[in-house]
Amino acid sequence: MSAAAVHGTPAQIRQATWATRALFAALGVLSAAWGVHIPSVKAHYGLGEGALSLVLVAAASGAVLALFFAGRVIGRLGARNAAALCALVMAFSLGMALQWPSFALLLLSMVVFGSSLSVYDVAINTEGSALETAGGKPIMGGLHGMFSVGGMAGAALAAGLLRAGVPAPWQLSAVGLGMAAWVLVGSRWMLPTAPDTEASAQKPHFAWPRGPLLVIGLLIFAGMSAEGVMYDWCVLYLQQEVGMPQAQAALGYAAFSGAMATMRFVADGLRARFSEQRLLRASGSTTALAMAVLLLSGNPWVSLLGYAFIGAGLAMVVPILYGAASRVPGTTPAAAIAAVSSIGYSGFMIGPPLIGGIAQHASLTLAMGVVVLASTILALSVRHVPEKA
């Protein structure tokens, strides 16, 4: 699918942009519900850090494997139909996360969950890239900002429901059903993408990362490693290492997502004024410094503030790099985004389970230092990112 495959009047493009924002927000709500209830999964199945890491590996493995066929699915169904279908699968998997009778079935469901999530993610990012081109102005930062708004709202909702004593299985089932309805309705307002032409069908639906795509993919790997660690382990860190109750620890997820959302909404304006390399360098440096201070302190309030700075620091990494990937010539935006995502989701696959392994043999505090390392690498390597025209 080409970035110019979305056509419509200015009013239709604005309407489709708001619909796509709603789909990004829905993904944020679902991700927050999963992130906040990782301790619930740990407790429900009686898992240690090592076994919990296997759950995260299963989800991340499904996400990476699905990227090899994401471009083909989106090319045939269109972004909006692919997103709607994946939303149904994600909703079912989330709702069943605390219902399976065995650990083996949980692992299998997490593979399905991760697969549907990654295809959904590529679909809405492909739609966003097409709308950005069709509308003639940057919108990717704002779209990813809606993901963060959804994450903040989902985490705050989960915290409130935990305080009210609502059972965790009920919470996940309700979020799953709500998200499915949300996406099915919202996707109807998106502009349909044109079917593959003979020329576009001959282009690869998955581009093996090389050259600029490889560079972008490796930097997304660093950013997603740090981001994945925060999503999957930030609540457990506050609960286990800082000593905060789960309901209060969930506010750390909300602080992280809220700061990320705020920064993403101003990211498009910053991209118009400053070099993207400069913005990425500032992002990596801010994240590394904030995480280092947080880990050395161990104070609840410093931790919450640190989460906010980390969220702000990581906010622009993925929107900038996805936008850069979609502009690489010789392939379709869906294939390019899938290609760099295949490396980036490997960060989700390696980062969070690595934390579990280090925590199992040392401490969770030491393990979270992976965020400092990943963001430092990002800050030092951005000179290899091709600047926008």
Rank of each mutant, 00 (worst) to 15 (best):
P101K: 05
L314F: 03
G95V: 08
G186E: 09
A66T: 02
V293N: 06
V166A: 11
V382Y: 01
V229H: 02
G298N: 05
A250K: 06
V318E: 09
F206A: 01
A82V: 04
R188P: 01
D268K: 07
P101S: 05
F221C: 03
V6N: 06
S109V: 09
L27S: 14
V372G: 01
R327P: 02
A292D: 02
G357I: 02
M260I: 06
A134C: 08
L270C: 13
A374W: 03
Q202A: 14
I343H: 05
T9F: 00
V64I: 07
W34G: 09
A199T: 15
L373G: 08
W208R: 08
L296Y: 10
V73A: 12
I358G: 07
E387L: 06
H37W: 09
A43D: 13
F92G: 15
G135Q: 12
A324V: 10
Q248P: 14
L56Y: 03
R21H: 13
T126S: 13
V242L: 00
M179K: 09
E132T: 05
P329G: 01
A272P: 12
S61Q: 06
E241I: 10
M244V: 08
V372A: 03
V122M: 01
V111I: 14
G186L: 10
A335L: 00
F147Y: 12
G311H: 10
A292C: 13
S326Q: 00
D196P: 14
M152C: 14
L98Y: 06
A181G: 09
L236D: 14
L107M: 05
A60C: 05
G151A: 07
A82I: 02
A325R: 00
G311V: 07
G145T: 10
T286R: 15
F69N: 13
F221Q: 00
A247G: 12
G217T: 00
L177E: 11
S283N: 06
G151C: 08
S363G: 00
Y253H: 15
H7V: 14
L106R: 02
A207D: 13
W18F: 15
V57F: 15
T193Q: 15
G344I: 01
R264C: 10
F274Q: 12
P333M: 01
S118W: 01
A104G: 14
R383T: 09
S275R: 04
T193R: 15
H144C: 10
G78I: 07
W301H: 15
A194L: 11
A43W: 07
G306W: 01
A180F: 05
K203G: 11
R21P: 15
V73D: 02
